[in-house]
């Protein structure tokens, strides 16, 4: 996605020749919440409430989750109608088949069809189906994406190279509370007879957020 300032300084014949001051690096200093996280973690370990191993295992478990898990779920839904019906009716329960525990949140699956294209955003923060897709990409947490996706979703989608036909309804899901949203992309044509494993390779993280289509073979 483009950054919000593609004006002035990129066009040297433009009437605004000023340069923005360079943005300072922020990766060499700890912010308030980073310091708080370290302090709380050290206190919990110091008081014996959690062990350093448990912290490490939780980090590794989160890092191990990624689009491959979501892609497997999507590919199974494409190839197993009974699973798809369960996934659409109660995503939280259905993904237990894949060993996924949604914790205190619930998984809500929305299906892209020839008439509806779904896209997910969290305008308030960065709610994301981490248990099935892992950590969100940085752009998902950017103010640009969060504010513009509810206001001009088609323009945002276009910046991802995703042009939704004018007669298809674009449906934005603002993830404000306890649901976590996974987009079930449309199965690409030309994949008849493909195995779930082959199909999973066509499913990207972005397709499951709704900013892209599944890859075509």
């Amino acid at each position: 996605m483009n950054e919000p300032h593609d004006h002035a300084h990129e066009h040297h014949d433009h009437a605004h020749p000023h340069r923005h001051p360079p943005r300072p690096d922020t990766d060499d200093t700890l912010g308030h919440f980073q310091i708080m996280e370290i302090a709380v973690r050290e206190l919990l370990i110091g008081k014996g409430i959690v062990s350093p191993d448990e912290v490490q295992r939780a980090i590794e478990a989160m890092d191990a989750r990624g689009e491959a898990l979501g892609a497997k779920i999507v590919a199974r839904a494409w190839t197993d109608p009974a699973f798809k019906a369960r996934l659409m009716a109660d995503g939280t329960e259905a993904v237990r088949d894949f060993g996924v525990d949604m914790g205190t949140t619930r998984l809500f699956v929305v299906e892209n069809t020839s008439t509806v294209h779904n896209v997910v955003v969290c305008t308030l923060c960065s709610c994301y189906p981490r248990m099935v897709l892992g950590l969100p990409p940085d752009w998902y947490k950017s103010r640009n994406y969060r504010s513009r996706t509810v206001r001009e979703p088609r323009a945002v989608l276009q910046e991802f190279g995703t042009v939704v036909p004018a007669d298809t309804e674009v449906r934005v899901h603002d993830s404000t509370a306890d649901m976590r949203y996974l987009v079930l992309p449309e199965r690409p044509s030309g994949t008849d007879g493909w195995s779930a494993e082959q199909l999973a390779a066509l499913v990207s993280r972005d397709a499951m957020i709704g900013v892209a289509f599944a890859r075509t073979p």
Binding site: R151, E152, A155, E169, R171, V172, D174, S175
Partner: peptide, 25 residues
């Protein structure tokens, strides 16, 4: 989950009149 017409939220919405937004309230 409540569904809104984008044109109801943003009177100058430039997309399809059928475009919607779903949000948890």
């Amino acid at each position: 989950r409540v569904r809104f017409r984008q044109r109801e939220i943003w009177p100058d919405y430039a997309g399809n009149a059928a475009d919607t937004l779903d949000i948890e309230i």
